[in-house]
Protein backbone atom coordinates (compact mmCIF):
# COMPACT_ATOMS: atom_id res chain seq x y z
CA UNK A 1 0.00 0.00 0.00
CA UNK A 2 1.24 3.48 -0.85
CA UNK A 3 2.18 6.08 1.76
CA UNK A 4 -0.78 7.53 3.63
CA UNK A 5 -2.57 10.47 2.06
CA UNK A 6 -4.64 10.91 5.20
CA UNK A 7 -3.22 10.20 8.61
CA UNK A 8 -5.30 10.71 11.74
CA UNK A 9 -3.85 10.48 15.24
CA UNK A 10 -5.90 10.22 18.44
CA UNK A 11 -8.50 12.68 17.17
CA UNK A 12 -11.12 13.80 19.69
CA UNK A 13 -14.02 16.20 19.78
CA UNK A 14 -16.12 16.99 22.81
CA UNK A 15 -19.49 18.72 22.82
CA UNK A 16 -19.76 19.90 26.40
CA UNK A 17 -19.40 16.72 28.42
CA UNK A 18 -20.08 14.42 25.47
CA UNK A 19 -17.11 12.88 23.67
CA UNK A 20 -18.57 12.58 20.17
CA UNK A 21 -15.25 11.40 18.79
CA UNK A 22 -12.62 10.07 21.14
CA UNK A 23 -9.04 9.08 20.34
CA UNK A 24 -9.69 7.97 16.77
CA UNK A 25 -6.62 7.05 14.72
CA UNK A 26 -6.72 5.86 11.14
CA UNK A 27 -4.83 5.96 7.86
CA UNK A 28 -5.94 6.14 4.27
CA UNK A 29 -3.56 5.74 1.32
CA UNK A 30 -3.78 6.39 -2.38
CA UNK A 31 -5.93 3.71 -4.02
CA UNK A 32 -7.46 2.76 -0.70
CA UNK A 33 -11.13 2.83 0.24
CA UNK A 34 -11.51 3.12 3.97
CA UNK A 35 -15.07 2.67 5.18
CA UNK A 36 -16.15 3.88 8.60
CA UNK A 37 -19.21 2.06 9.86
CA UNK A 38 -21.13 1.99 13.10
CA UNK A 39 -24.59 2.54 14.53
CA UNK A 40 -26.28 5.95 14.47
CA UNK A 41 -24.66 8.33 16.93
CA UNK A 42 -21.30 6.56 16.74
CA UNK A 43 -19.59 9.81 15.72
CA UNK A 44 -18.99 9.00 12.06
CA UNK A 45 -20.31 12.29 10.66
CA UNK A 46 -18.52 14.25 13.37
CA UNK A 47 -15.31 12.48 12.35
CA UNK A 48 -15.81 13.58 8.73
CA UNK A 49 -16.52 17.13 9.89
CA UNK A 50 -13.25 17.12 11.85
CA UNK A 51 -11.32 15.91 8.81
CA UNK A 52 -12.89 18.40 6.39
CA UNK A 53 -12.42 21.42 8.65
CA UNK A 54 -16.15 21.96 9.20
CA UNK A 55 -15.42 21.47 12.91
CA UNK A 56 -12.18 22.04 14.81
CA UNK A 57 -11.06 19.04 16.89
CA UNK A 58 -10.60 19.27 20.66
CA UNK A 59 -7.34 17.35 20.42
CA UNK A 60 -5.36 15.10 18.13
CA UNK A 61 -3.72 15.51 14.73
CA UNK A 62 -4.84 15.33 11.11
CA UNK A 63 -2.19 15.09 8.40
CA UNK A 64 -2.63 15.31 4.65
CA UNK A 65 0.40 14.03 2.71
CA UNK A 66 2.38 14.50 5.90
CA UNK A 67 1.31 18.11 6.28
CA UNK A 68 -0.46 19.06 9.50
CA UNK A 69 -3.92 20.36 8.61
CA UNK A 70 -5.44 20.12 12.10
CA UNK A 71 -7.89 22.93 12.74
CA UNK A 72 -7.56 24.53 9.31
CA UNK A 73 -10.80 26.07 8.01
CA UNK A 74 -12.84 24.08 5.51
CA UNK A 75 -11.94 26.30 2.55
CA UNK A 76 -8.22 25.80 3.17
CA UNK A 77 -8.64 22.05 3.62
CA UNK A 78 -10.60 21.92 0.35
CA UNK A 79 -7.91 23.82 -1.51
CA UNK A 80 -5.30 21.34 -0.31
CA UNK A 81 -7.11 18.61 -2.23
CA UNK A 82 -9.86 17.29 0.02
CA UNK A 83 -13.32 16.92 -1.47
CA UNK A 84 -16.28 16.09 0.71
CA UNK A 85 -19.90 15.26 0.17
CA UNK A 86 -22.59 15.75 2.75
CA UNK A 87 -25.04 13.28 4.22
CA UNK A 88 -27.76 15.90 4.03
CA UNK A 89 -27.79 17.20 0.48
CA UNK A 90 -25.88 20.47 0.52
CA UNK A 91 -26.13 22.08 -2.89
CA UNK A 92 -27.30 25.28 -4.59
CA UNK A 93 -30.98 24.53 -5.15
CA UNK A 94 -31.94 27.54 -7.32
CA UNK A 95 -28.97 27.03 -9.67
CA UNK A 96 -28.80 24.60 -12.57
CA UNK A 97 -26.93 21.29 -12.37
CA UNK A 98 -24.26 22.79 -14.59
CA UNK A 99 -23.85 25.91 -12.45
CA UNK A 100 -23.50 23.78 -9.32
CA UNK A 101 -20.66 21.79 -10.86
CA UNK A 102 -19.20 24.87 -12.56
CA UNK A 103 -18.99 26.76 -9.26
CA UNK A 104 -17.26 23.75 -7.75
CA UNK A 105 -14.76 23.60 -10.62
CA UNK A 106 -14.24 27.37 -10.50
CA UNK A 107 -13.06 27.03 -6.91
CA UNK A 108 -9.76 25.59 -8.21
CA UNK A 109 -8.79 28.91 -9.83
CA UNK A 110 -6.09 30.72 -7.85
CA UNK A 111 -8.57 33.56 -7.25
CA UNK A 112 -12.11 34.45 -8.25
CA UNK A 113 -11.59 38.15 -7.56
CA UNK A 114 -12.00 38.70 -11.29
CA UNK A 115 -14.74 41.22 -11.84
CA UNK A 116 -14.93 41.39 -15.63
CA UNK A 117 -14.20 37.87 -16.83
CA UNK A 118 -17.55 36.24 -17.70
CA UNK A 119 -17.95 33.17 -15.49
CA UNK A 120 -19.11 30.96 -18.35
CA UNK A 121 -16.11 31.79 -20.54
CA UNK A 122 -13.40 29.61 -19.00
CA UNK A 123 -13.13 26.49 -21.13
CA UNK A 124 -11.17 24.34 -18.65
CA UNK A 125 -13.61 25.15 -15.84
CA UNK A 126 -16.59 24.27 -18.04
CA UNK A 127 -14.89 21.05 -19.14
CA UNK A 128 -14.14 20.01 -15.56
CA UNK A 129 -17.77 20.66 -14.63
CA UNK A 130 -19.06 18.73 -17.64
CA UNK A 131 -16.78 15.78 -16.86
CA UNK A 132 -17.91 15.64 -13.23
CA UNK A 133 -21.56 15.76 -14.29
CA UNK A 134 -20.95 12.89 -16.69
CA UNK A 135 -19.16 10.80 -14.09
CA UNK A 136 -21.98 11.31 -11.60
CA UNK A 137 -24.45 10.09 -14.24
CA UNK A 138 -26.23 13.37 -14.83
CA UNK A 139 -25.32 13.98 -18.48
CA UNK A 140 -28.23 15.60 -20.26
CA UNK A 141 -29.55 17.20 -17.06
CA UNK A 142 -27.14 20.18 -17.09
CA UNK A 143 -29.76 22.85 -17.68
CA UNK A 144 -32.22 21.74 -15.02
CA UNK A 145 -32.51 23.66 -11.75
CA UNK A 146 -31.38 21.39 -8.92
CA UNK A 147 -34.54 22.17 -6.94
CA UNK A 148 -36.53 20.43 -9.70
CA UNK A 149 -34.54 17.17 -9.47
CA UNK A 150 -35.53 14.03 -7.59
CA UNK A 151 -33.86 13.39 -4.27
CA UNK A 152 -31.63 10.72 -5.80
CA UNK A 153 -30.51 13.06 -8.57
CA UNK A 154 -29.74 15.77 -6.02
CA UNK A 155 -27.46 13.22 -4.33
CA UNK A 156 -25.71 12.78 -7.67
CA UNK A 157 -25.25 16.56 -7.92
CA UNK A 158 -23.63 16.39 -4.50
CA UNK A 159 -21.13 13.88 -5.86
CA UNK A 160 -20.59 15.79 -9.12
CA UNK A 161 -19.69 18.90 -7.11
CA UNK A 162 -17.24 16.96 -4.98
CA UNK A 163 -15.56 15.52 -8.08
CA UNK A 164 -15.46 18.86 -9.90
CA UNK A 165 -12.98 20.17 -7.32
CA UNK A 166 -10.48 17.46 -8.48
CA UNK A 167 -9.64 16.22 -4.98
CA UNK A 168 -7.07 13.54 -4.17
CA UNK A 169 -8.80 12.65 -0.91
CA UNK A 170 -12.54 12.05 -0.96
CA UNK A 171 -14.55 12.24 2.24
CA UNK A 172 -17.96 10.80 1.45
CA UNK A 173 -20.67 10.98 4.09
CA UNK A 174 -23.30 8.39 3.12
CA UNK A 175 -23.04 8.93 -0.62
CA UNK A 176 -25.79 6.37 -1.32
CA UNK A 177 -28.34 7.66 1.20
CA UNK A 178 -31.72 8.16 -0.44
CA UNK A 179 -30.73 6.76 -3.82
CA UNK A 180 -32.72 4.20 -5.73
CA UNK A 181 -31.18 0.79 -6.53
CA UNK A 182 -30.13 1.69 -10.05
CA UNK A 183 -28.61 5.05 -9.10
CA UNK A 184 -26.84 3.47 -6.13
CA UNK A 185 -25.35 0.73 -8.31
CA UNK A 186 -24.09 3.35 -10.72
CA UNK A 187 -22.46 5.32 -7.92
CA UNK A 188 -20.82 2.19 -6.51
CA UNK A 189 -19.34 1.53 -9.96
CA UNK A 190 -18.17 5.17 -10.14
CA UNK A 191 -16.55 4.97 -6.70
CA UNK A 192 -14.78 1.75 -7.69
CA UNK A 193 -13.31 3.51 -10.69
CA UNK A 194 -12.34 6.57 -8.64
CA UNK A 195 -10.68 4.40 -6.02
CA UNK A 196 -7.72 3.70 -8.32
CA UNK A 197 -6.35 7.21 -8.21
CA UNK A 198 -7.91 8.66 -5.08
CA UNK A 199 -7.76 8.07 -1.38
CA UNK A 200 -11.32 7.56 -0.17
CA UNK A 201 -12.84 7.70 3.28
CA UNK A 202 -16.43 6.60 3.27
CA UNK A 203 -19.21 6.58 5.81
CA UNK A 204 -22.04 4.33 4.64
CA UNK A 205 -24.91 2.28 6.03
CA UNK A 206 -25.40 0.12 2.95
CA UNK A 207 -23.31 -2.92 3.98
CA UNK A 208 -23.42 -4.52 0.53
CA UNK A 209 -21.86 -1.38 -0.92
CA UNK A 210 -19.34 -1.15 1.92
CA UNK A 211 -18.11 -4.70 1.43
CA UNK A 212 -18.08 -4.25 -2.36
CA UNK A 213 -15.88 -1.15 -2.11
CA UNK A 214 -13.76 -1.05 1.01
CA UNK A 215 -10.40 -2.66 1.48
CA UNK A 216 -10.26 -1.38 5.03
CA UNK A 217 -12.95 -0.93 7.64
CA UNK A 218 -13.10 0.95 10.89
CA UNK A 219 -15.99 0.24 13.22
CA UNK A 220 -16.98 3.06 15.56
CA UNK A 221 -19.26 2.83 18.57
CA UNK A 222 -19.93 5.74 20.94
CA UNK A 223 -17.13 7.84 19.48
CA UNK A 224 -14.37 5.25 19.84
CA UNK A 225 -12.86 2.77 17.40
CA UNK A 226 -14.07 -0.71 18.26
CA UNK A 227 -12.03 -2.47 15.64
CA UNK A 228 -10.15 -1.65 12.46
CA UNK A 229 -8.85 -3.94 9.74
CA UNK A 230 -9.48 -5.59 6.38
CA UNK A 231 -13.08 -6.62 5.51
CA UNK A 232 -12.56 -10.34 6.32
CA UNK A 233 -11.33 -9.50 9.82
CA UNK A 234 -14.28 -7.21 10.50
CA UNK A 235 -16.79 -9.70 9.16
CA UNK A 236 -15.36 -12.36 11.45
CA UNK A 237 -15.05 -10.18 14.53
CA UNK A 238 -17.23 -11.23 17.45
CA UNK A 239 -17.09 -7.81 19.07
CA UNK A 240 -18.33 -6.17 15.89
CA UNK A 241 -21.03 -8.79 15.46
CA UNK A 242 -22.34 -8.10 18.91
CA UNK A 243 -22.07 -4.34 18.78
CA UNK A 244 -23.31 -3.75 15.32
CA UNK A 245 -23.46 -6.11 12.41
CA UNK A 246 -25.35 -8.93 14.00
CA UNK A 247 -27.38 -6.72 16.30
CA UNK A 248 -30.54 -4.88 15.43
CA UNK A 249 -30.98 -4.37 11.73
CA UNK A 250 -30.65 -0.68 12.31
CA UNK A 251 -29.29 0.30 8.98
CA UNK A 252 -31.59 0.98 6.08
Amino acid sequence: MAASVLSVERLSRNFGGLAAVSGVSLECGMGEVHAVIGPNGAGKSTLINLLSGDLPPSSGRVRLDGRDITGLSSDRVSRLGVGRSYQKTNVFLPFTVFENARLAAQSRLPSSLRFFRPAASLRHVNDAAERAIGEAGLAGREGVAVAALSHGEQRQVEIAMTLATSPKLLLLDEPLAGMGGEEAARIVELLKRLAADHAMLLVEHDMDAVFALANKLTVMVNGVVLESGPPEQIRGSRAVQEAYLGGDEEHD
Partner: peptide
Protein backbone atom coordinates in the same frame (compact mmCIF):
# COMPACT_ATOMS: atom_id res chain seq x y z
CA UNK B 1 -18.21 37.50 -13.85
CA UNK B 2 -16.34 34.85 -11.89
CA UNK B 3 -16.64 37.14 -8.87
CA UNK B 4 -20.35 37.72 -9.41
CA UNK B 5 -21.14 34.02 -9.45
CA UNK B 6 -19.21 33.46 -6.24
CA UNK B 7 -21.14 36.24 -4.53
CA UNK B 8 -24.47 34.73 -5.61
CA UNK B 9 -23.33 31.31 -4.46
CA UNK B 10 -22.61 32.79 -1.04
CA UNK B 11 -26.17 34.10 -0.78
CA UNK B 12 -27.64 30.71 -1.59
CA UNK B 13 -25.33 28.53 0.52
CA UNK B 14 -22.30 30.09 2.17
CA UNK B 15 -21.41 26.93 4.05
CA UNK B 16 -21.11 24.95 0.82
CA UNK B 17 -19.05 27.72 -0.80
CA UNK B 18 -16.57 27.38 2.05
CA UNK B 19 -16.39 23.64 1.74
CA UNK B 20 -15.77 24.07 -2.00
CA UNK B 21 -12.66 26.06 -1.09
Amino acid sequence: SLFGRVVQGIRVNEHRMKSLG
